[in-house]
């Protein structure tokens, strides 16, 4: 029983640059689910619900970008 297909396992044959590009593309696409992500995936606050940390939602932005809502 394998978690990954043979294509997935090809990661080991990628160059460092190829791996970085593949992950960066995945990261780009994964932004689409930000609003529905759990507040914490690791750490000891992982059991706390989204409602429990709603008031602590971060509104920081890149220092180079003016205050604006992300396009995603």
């Amino acid at each position: 029983m394998q978690m990954l297909s043979e294509d997935d396992r090809n990661l080991k044959e990628m160059t460092t640059a190829e791996l970085a590009r593949a992950w960066d593309l995945w990261f780009d696409l994964a932004q689409a689910t930000n609003d529905s992500d759990r507040p914490y995936t690791h750490g000891v606050f992982a059991a706390i619900s989204a409602a429990g940390v709603e008031a602590g939602r971060v509104r920081s932005r890149s220092p180079d970008i003016a205050e604006s809502k992300p396009s995603r």
Binding site: F27, D28, Q31, N34, Y40, T41, H42, G43, V44, F45, V58, S60, R61, S62, D64, I65, P70, S71, R72
Partner: peptide
């Protein structure tokens, strides 16, 4: 655990734990 967040130059959410 300590948790942080910022947005990169492409406005992608970066979380650091």
């Amino acid at each position: 655990s300590s948790h942080f967040e910022f947005f990169d130059a492409s406005q992608r959410r970066v979380r650091c734990d």
